[in-house]
Design a protein around this nucleic acid. Structure first.
Length: 317
DNA sequence: CGACTTTGACCGGCGC
DNA sequence: GCGCCGGTCAAAGTCG
């Protein structure tokens, strides 16, 4: 690993001040138009368009690298966790399910899918049709008593209970985005590390994810056993801020929707297309640039993702 | 006024 | 059968 000394400019040098287009200006002004002197020349527009297009290409490539590296890292972490469990866990998955154990909650995210060994007793109703269960840690200030976890979906709270094994209340949520969505969520502050909220998801959404700008991506099942960061004996920081700042070391990663690029970009005609679509193309590009640069969540998340992965994976090598 | 939250009541599973 | 407990319901309250 060679040291990275390059100063990384994460600012988005996009067109922040697009000309004030109106609906009437979606078509190029005629040569006799009074707007002729105000509007930029087509050469300047074409130059800006090319610059923005190249920037979009670069951003797209960088994000692709980021996503790819993230997937590789995630797979490596999962592999390591699985190997660790195989070494440490006794038959029957005893060791991996010792977090927050209670009478009715004796399974963990690591056994979320089809591992029946974690359903070693109770829950007879769910023998063959148990919903998918995934548990997620969300770093939250201890002073924050609201059991709110923003994951991009819309939830309706339908109950709250104080359970026996945890002094903090447990909140029950149903997905309210689609009336028929069966997904439920339980949120409760971790009894072992109050810096975290434990969100337990049951079921699968039967609808697309609503647009949310920024969200905490569910990285996957998390082992909450003795060898995880919840264990105060290891060196992994339990600070919420440290966890959320470093995507490569956190179970929760600020993720952004790539809709801006993946959905909008292909709709933009190439510069060689007909004149009738060129103004629409410019409008789309400028709207896209404005949307991107006006969204602080996007710029923040993009900067975090890019810088974090640059340092970790030397993608600028 | 509609959507959402709060909260006490109720229900069903489980252990004794 | 009884009590405990987690999960759910639903009426009342709150908020924008």
């Amino acid at each position: 690993m060679e040291p990275t000394t390059t100063t990384i400019n994460t600012s988005l040098d996009l067109n922040l001040n697009p000309p004030p287009y109106t609906d009437d200006q979606s078509h190029p002004p005629t040569p006799n138009s009074p707007l002729k002197q105000q509007a930029p020349t087509t050469g300047i527009l074409a130059e800006k368009l090319n610059r923005i297009s190249s920037e979009n290409k670069k951003l797209n490539q960088m994000l692709g690298v980021v996503v790819e590296n993230y997937s590789v890292l995630k797979n490596q972490v999962i592999d390591l966790l699985m190997k660790s469990r195989k070494r440490k866990a006794a038959p029957g998955c005893d060791n991996c399910c010792n977090f927050n154990r209670s009478a009715s909650d004796q399974y963990c995210g690591c056994c979320s899918d089809d591992n029946d060994s974690c359903y070693n007793n109770k829950r007879p109703r769910e023998n063959n049709s148990k919903p998918k269960v995934m548990r997620v840690l969300v770093p939250t200030p201890v002073s924050d008593s609201t059991l709110i976890v923003k994951d991009g979906y819309q939830w309706r709270k339908y109950g709250q209970k104080v359970t026996k094994d945890n002094p903090s209340p447990r909140a029950y949520y149903k997905c309210s985005f689609a009336p028929t969505c069966p997904v439920k969520r339980k949120v409760q502050r971790s009894v072992e590390d109050p810096c975290y909220l434990v969100a337990t998801y049951e079921g699968q959404h039967n609808h697309p994810k609503p647009n949310s700008g920024i969200e905490y991506q569910l990285v996957g099942p998390i082992n909450l056993g003795s060898n995880t960061k919840l264990d105060s004996s290891n060196n992994v920081s339990s600070s919420p801020s440290s966890s959320i700042k470093s995507p490569s070391s956190s179970s929760l990663i600020p993720s952004i929707s790539l809709d801006y690029l993946t959905k909008s970009q292909p709709q933009i005609p190439s510069p060689s297309s007909s004149n009738s679509s060129s103004s629409t193309q410019k409008l789309l590009v400028q709207q896209m640039a404005t949307l991107l640069t006006r969204d602080p969540n996007f710029t923040r998340a993009l900067a975090t993702a890019i810088t974090g992965n640059m340092v970790d994976n030397e993608i600028w090598r």
